[in-house]
Each structure stands twice: as structure tokens, then as C-alpha cells.
Write a protein that binds this DNA or RNA. Structure first.
Lengths: 340, 340
DNA sequence: TAAGCGCTTGCAACCGGTTGCATACGCTTG
DNA sequence: CAAGCGTATGCAACCGGTTGCAAGCGCTTA
């Protein structure tokens, strides 16, 4: 409301310290060849005036923004929290900062991407963003390094963060089989989703390797949401499918499944064993605590940043392949002798 | 890796269209007094060259950034999701974009705030950010409008988004009382937190108004996390406190409480009634679905944006006062005749 | 037919920094 | 004592836009 621009510039500092603006710039940015005395008087003048560099001007002059962008698929859903945290943690050690945009908030991913690009981010992390074709991202990559997580990036696989979705799903299915379950239902993620497909593949392979014929009726497609888990399970139940265990492709869907079972009077794990995927924070606090597969989202976020910073500095980086870890909790139990 | 700057400028367009850069600028920004024919040829040249305005340059020239900042307390915890969504939705109708920073990611809120300020955000939403003193935010407010949610902002209460925490807590406690519960435990949020204090006050007042003496042993301080809910409840149980209902000051804590009760063999709501606060997405999917109090986070986010945009345009805005709504689900039941 | 007007357009300054080049200075060295 | 060198600083151009001012143009009007 008041005067809208008291902002202090290097020229103000220059005047106070009795030097030129370029000297101020050099002194502040730590350049060589500035006399210690001058530097000190500039520093103190800057402090006295509460100077804050104008990042816009800096970016414009230097050509790049000291910012990395993060494109999220939906509005900051709980799922991505740990990834973001990893990114922020890694970024804290650099002098880059984070600009986030979410695809859902912007009609479609395109507008969000546009925003990030217009802000001249020096690097970009794309989490899912399924409606943005690979080529669009690849076109970008000539100028700006990109790393993708949870999506494809054909032709630039080195910028792809991968997790052992197949192995995780295989392992958790195997666990259920080892407990004696032979009728294992699977609620998958959307099948256009690469990771959902991998998990389904892991599930199928585990059954196959154990010599258990897989029943297509036991696989229902969901979309990772709690609601989808609920509906899929209700569907399985009301269709009279015979199963003693459920493997949901996300913890959210497992939560929905749990509720459907509860409403049907079925106890987990007494009557039905239940496993999820992701190990979201709440998984340890459901009733009963959920056996699931953890993705190292935090480390993935860190790795994404390291990769980008490396590429920005012109190095050729290679991303590690991440592995999942099995989290045994209380939602699985041996199959009951007489399954109803 | 390749040539790092193919970026197209208005000068490139000017050359192609055979006009000067200033005309390009005017044509593109929709200014008056540009001949229709000229405008068209500029538009098509811009499209052909895949021109994207350099926001840095624009911001610098125009003095402000067309960006509003959002300061989040911790890393994108699930809680703030709906607020962010509301903000993004409201923003979508404007030509502002969103810059998010989280306090946790940046050692302390100060660095995050600094980032936002340096980016010259035109407006700022501060969610919590407890370690930043009111004055620091107020000092800013001379230049940049600020709106706070879930924290104090002494001396500038008009920029504060308030919810009826007291009323919500009162109502939910009253509900438990109406079901016959007289021994109602409360797991509060951290007591330096304004909203946590309000909820505690609502709880106390409801008991008082019903003529039920409040027992200080039944109030345990938590910090809104699931873990805190678990620990607080275990503490109540092992201390042998006599209670038939629990009011947790957040859904997360209610989840923790639910688990503690489960491990103790207590059924919700048969043995103990349980209510939460916030109505987070998962609340409808817990076992049993959680009775709670919903905060209109989405609307709050929208209102925050409208307020800021108004203030940016120089209008004096006034924020509505938000009310909570009671969500009755399955975690509460009448007190059993013979409470153990 | 000349003055006057409004619409288009270009010139140039500016936003707040960075940086190559040139200058001025003080010192060492032959 | 002059040439030579390195260090400290200033000048001015530049990053990519925006915008006030003035000039050029075609047209109307007296």
C-alpha cells in the first residue's frame, strides 16, 4: 500500500560505499581482485541497507536462473511428499532453489510445463505428467536437462529414474504365496502407467513361478486412489470371486480395500491378507498396519538433483537403479486351513 | 549439451516480421494502437519461431513478477494439499503463477522466505511457518501483501485466514457428550500453535457447558503427527486413565490413537469413540471411517488468492471467516452401559 | 492547399544486475 | 629513472523485455 519500491540496488550501495556499481557486484559475488578494505566497506554498506539481490536481474544478466523446476502430476498429493523432501534436501547443499508446478492445477501439464520453461529453470524434474508426450520433454532437453520419475522418456533413458517395481511386486506376491495363499487378487494401477504395468508383471510372474495358474478374474484395474481400491474390492466380493489375499498396487488402494473388507465383516489378516505398495507414511498406522513395499522416494529425489546439477555443469551423469524394500507388518497371515 | 541458447527473443521476431522490437512487444502484450495486419504478421512470426517470453526480462522491466509465493511449514505434507489446490485453482483464472517453498526444506523458514522475497513475489501466502516472527512478515507487508493461514500475524489481522477451530472442537465434543460420554480424552496439538489452543478451548468449554468437570489428566499434548497420537494414547492407557472417548486435534493423531487402541484390543467405536479434526482425505477410509471436523481448506486457498490479487491491485480486501463442518462417520457410538 | 488530428511505429532509456576491456596506480626490476 | 607488470577499480555494453516521447503517415477539415 505504501511506496511500492524501496528496493535497494547495488547502485545504492555503490553510492554509500563511494565506489562504482561494478565493484559492488564483484565484491558481493566474491570475485577476485577487490581490495579487502573496499570489500569490507561494501559488505557493511550492503548489510546496513538490508540489500537483497534482485534475482530477476541476476538471472537475466547471467542467462540462467539458479532454479530447478519440479513438475508434479497432481496437487501435491501425499505420495510425492518424500520425493519433494529428497529434492529439497539435496538442493539445500547447492545454490539452486526449487520451483514447483502441478499439472492438475493447470488445466493440463502443458501449462505447468510452460510456466517452468518460461521461468528458465536450469533443470527439470518431471514426476509422471502423463499427458505430456515424450517428445515435448525431449525437445526441451537440448537446452535444459530433464529427469523423469514414474514415466517414460523414450530415447533418453539415461534421464529416467527407475525403481524395481517388478521385483517389489514379485517379492510381495511371493510372500503371500509362501503364506499359503493361492487365490491372490490384484488391484492394479492404470494400465497405461508404466510402473503399474511392471507391478502387474511382477505379480503374474510370481504366481507363474510358483506354478499357480493366474485367474484373470482376480485382476482389477484401479487408478491408485483409495476410492478405486474400495470399488475394486467391492466388485471382487460381490462378483463372488474366491480369494484369500489382495495385493493392491498402491497403499491408497489397499486402504480402500481394507474398508471394503471391513464393511463386509472380513478381518484383515484373519480372513484376508492385504498388501500395498509405496509405504506411504500412513501405512504403518492403518488398522492393521499394512505390509507393503517401500520405494526410496527420498533418495530418488536426491539422485534427481545430483543428476541435474551434474548435467548443468556439463558432466555426463548416470542415475542409479533403485530397489524397493519389503516392509512386513501386520496385514498378512498364513492362509486359514478352511478358507470360506 | 548442445548449443545452450537457441532462445528466441522479440528481436528475432522483429527481424522476421520487419518491424521494431517495441512494436513486437506491444503487439504481443495486446497493447492498443498496433495495426491489425502488423499484429497478425507478428503473431504468426512468433508462433513460427516458437517464441516464449523471457519472464525474467519481463519481470525486471515491469518491476514485478506475476508470481505469488507460498510458504509451507513442512515438506508438502498431506495436510496442505487441499489448500494448495484451492490456491492453484484460483490462480488459474489470473495470470499469476505459483512459487512454492517449504520451511523444512530450508534449514528454517527464513531461508525459504528469503527465496520467495528474492524472487520478488507480488504476494505471499504463509501457512504456519512458526519460526518466522510476525514482525518479519509485517515488515514485508509494506511492499508485498501477505496472507497468513494457521498462524498469528499480530497487527495485521485483516490478512489472517481464520477458521472456527473453537466452534468445531466445541461441536465435536458436544457430539461425544450427547452420546453419553463424560470421560473424554483430548490429544491436543502443540500448545504454542494458535489453532491447537483454540481447539483445546472448544473442548473445555463444551465439557464445562455440559456441567462435566474437566480432568487435566485426560488432556495430552501432541504435535499433530500420527506418532504423537499413538504415544499419547498409549500413555493414557498405561497410566490407567478412565475414558470412553478420544478427541484428537488432528486426523493424523486420531489414526495413531486408533492403532494404540487396536493394539490394546479395544474396538472403535464399541469400546472407545474416536474423533479427529481436519477431514483429511484418508479419514473416510480408516477402519472404521473417522468422525471428524472438516476445514474448508480449498476455499481458504481460493480466498487467500483473491485477497492477494485484490491487494496487489490496490483494493482493500476483507477475508471471510471460515466455518468448519461436522462429518459424522462410524468411529463414534453411544457409551456402553457398563464402561470398563 | 495547408493546418490539424489520430493512428502506427521507431528510438532510446530503463529495470538491476554482470563482465570484458581499459585505465590508473603502486611496486619491482634492469 | 624508465619500462614493465599486476592489482584495484571504473566505463560501458549487454541480458530481453517495456514504455514515454516524438516522428511519420494518411486523412479530414477550414
Amino acid at each position: 500500500m505504501r511506496s511500492s519500491k524501496p528496493s535497494v540496488t547495488i547502485y545504492d550501495i555503490a553510492r554509500v560505499a563511494g565506489v562504482s556499481a561494478s565493484t559492488v557486484s564483484r565484491a558481493l559475488s566474491g570475485h577476485l581482485h577487490v581490495a579487502a578494505a573496499t570489500r569490507e566497506s561494501i559488505r557493511s554498506a550492503a548489510a546496513a541497507l538490508r540489500y537483497r539481490p534482485n534475482l530477476m536481474a541476476q538471472d537475466l544478466a547471467m542467462g540462467r536462473s539458479q532454479t530447478i523446476g519440479l513438475l508434479l502430476p497432481d496437487t501435491v498429493s501425499a505420495f510425492w511428499g518424500r520425493l519433494v523432501k529428497g529434492i529439497e534436501t539435496a538442493l539445500r547443499e547447492t545454490d539452486y532453489s526449487l520451483l514447483m508446478a502441478s499439472a492438475e492445477g493447470s488445466a493440463s501439464g502443458h501449462k505447468a510445463l510452460e510456466l517452468l520453461v518460461s521461468h528458465h529453470v536450469d533443470g527439470l524434474v518431471v514426476a509422471a505428467g502423463s499427458d505430456i508426450p515424450d517428445e515435448e520433454l525431449l525437445g526441451l532437453d537440448d537446452e535444459t536437462p530433464v529427469v523423469a520419475v514414474g514415466r517414460s522418456l523414450a530415447g533418453r533413458e539415461d534421464g529416467l529414474i527407475r525403481v524395481g517395481n517388478f521385483e517389489g511386486a514379485y517379492q510381495v506376491t511371493q510372500h503371500l504365496i509362501a503364506l499359503g495363499h493361492t487365490r491372490v487378487a490384484h488391484i492394479s494401477g492404470p494400465l497405461w502407467h508404466v510402473e503399474a504395468k511392471e507391478r502387474l508383471r511382477g505379480y503374474r510372474r510370481a504366481l507363474e513361478d510358483a506354478g499357480i495358474p493366474s485367474d484373470p478374474h482376480l485382476v482389477v484395474e484401479g487408478d491408485f486412489t483409495m476410492r478405486a481400491g474400495l470399488i475394486a474390492t467391492e466388485h471382487l466380493l460381490s462378483a463372488g470371486r474366491d480369494f484369500t489375499a489382495v495385493f493392491a498396487s498402491s497403499d491408497q488402494m489397499a486402504l480402500g480395500a481394507n474398508l471394503a473388507l471391513y464393511h463386509r465383516g472380513l478381518e484383515v489378516p484373519r480372513d484376508v491378507s492385504l498388501v500395498g505398495f509405496d509405504d506411504q507414511p500412513f501405512a504403518a498406522y492403518t488398522r492393521p498396519p499394512l505390509t507393503t513395499v517401500a520405494q526410496p522416494l527420498f533418495e530418488m529425489g536426491q539422485a534427481a538433483v545430483r543428476y541435474l546439477i551434474g548435467r548443468i555443469r556439463g558432466r555426463a551423469e548416470v542415475l542409479p537403479r533403485f530397489t524397493t524394500t519389503f516392509c512386513l507388518r501386520e496385514s498378512t497371515a498364513p492362509r486359514r486351513p478352511a478358507s470360506s
